[in-house]
């Protein structure tokens, strides 16, 4: 019982948005879908939601092909893109959600709209960036689906509303265990919520692991420049920084004890992500 991507590619003319993506997303876990702009996150989610057919490969939801009636009934995706009619008001959109989504929690949606200060009489298209995000995240939180994907859910939200969303997400997850896929740029904020992270780089999956493992995989070592030079001689250095006589480098964490005078700290998920992106960019060029 899971979402499976097998060798999925998506081409638009000559450009390739996804290259041979293979993934397994299990039930009742919180996944992060991380990647730079244009990495293919939205494309991946749109294929999952049956909006785009893939060029190659198979996508299944609990065994049913993505885009089939069975799969569509289990998946709910909210993203930046507007699939609502020009003149549809928030209130009517909630009504449509109630009509089409069997598990939709209408009262909760109305309550959340009040909590966030969302005017349900406004047209969906006329909402500001922030309130557009709020509208979408309310749909996602109340959808009742087995697999819910949030594509950039906190765009334009102030710190208080972002925090409120994370809190509501964890409440919803605790009350009704389901799979959450969180695609976001705000990695530092979301890192603690994620159980596993899927990292995309230029259409390929470059990491798909529990965040615990990623935290430990790389580390940052720092110390006096002379000692560092000695230490780094036989190691693959992913990135370096020098401030005065102090040098800091990102390397693979082998867990072995450090020579005296050097300090090691693990990278948090955001630092890991940035370092990994830089490494992958270099690989592509070199």
């Amino acid at each position: 019982m899971a979402i499976e991507f097998e060798g999925v590619s998506k081409r638009y003319g000559r450009a390739q948005a996804l290259k041979e993506v293979s993934l397994r997303l299990e039930k009742e876990r919180i996944y992060g879908l991380l990647g730079e702009n244009g990495a293919g996150k939205s494309t991946l989610l749109n294929i999952l939601g049956g909006r785009l057919p893939q060029s190659e490969g198979r996508v299944t939801v609990d065994g049913a092909p993505a885009g089939s009636d069975e799969a569509q009934g289990k998946v709910f995706i909210v993203g930046e893109s507007n699939y609502f009619p020009e003149d549809m008001k928030v209130k009517k959109a909630f009504r449509a959600a109630g009509a089409f989504l069997p598990g939709f929690e209408s009262e909760k949606a109305a309550a959340l709209a009040g909590e966030f200060g969302l005017d349900v009489k406004k047209r969906v298209k006329a909402l500001s960036t922030g309130y557009g995000s709020i509208f979408r995240l309310i749909l996602g939180l109340c959808s009742g689906a087995d697999y819910v994907a949030f594509d950039e859910p906190v765009l334009g939200l102030d710190a208080r509303h972002r925090d409120l969303f994370y809190r509501l997400l964890m409440e919803s997850y605790a009350a009704r265990p389901h799979t959450v896929i969180l695609s976001t740029h705000l990695i530092a904020e979301a890192a603690n919520l994620l159980e596993e992270a899927v990292i995309l780089h230029r259409g390929r999956v470059v990491a798909c692991e529990p965040t615990e493992n990623l935290r430990g995989a790389l580390c940052s070592v720092s110390g006096p420049a002379r000692l560092m030079e000695e230490f780094l001689r036989d190691k693959q250095v992913l990135s370096q920084r020098a401030v005065g006589g102090l040098r800091t480098a990102c390397i693979q964490n082998d867990g072995k004890p450090l020579p005296p005078g050097l300090e090691r700290s693990p990278l948090d998920l955001q630092e890991y992500f940035i370092t990994l992106m830089e490494e992958k960019d270099k690989e592509d060029v070199g």
Partner: peptide
């Protein structure tokens, strides 16, 4: 489009 948003094939 509306169908695509709400899981109608």
């Amino acid at each position: 489009r509306l169908g695509a948003q709400f899981g109608v094939t």
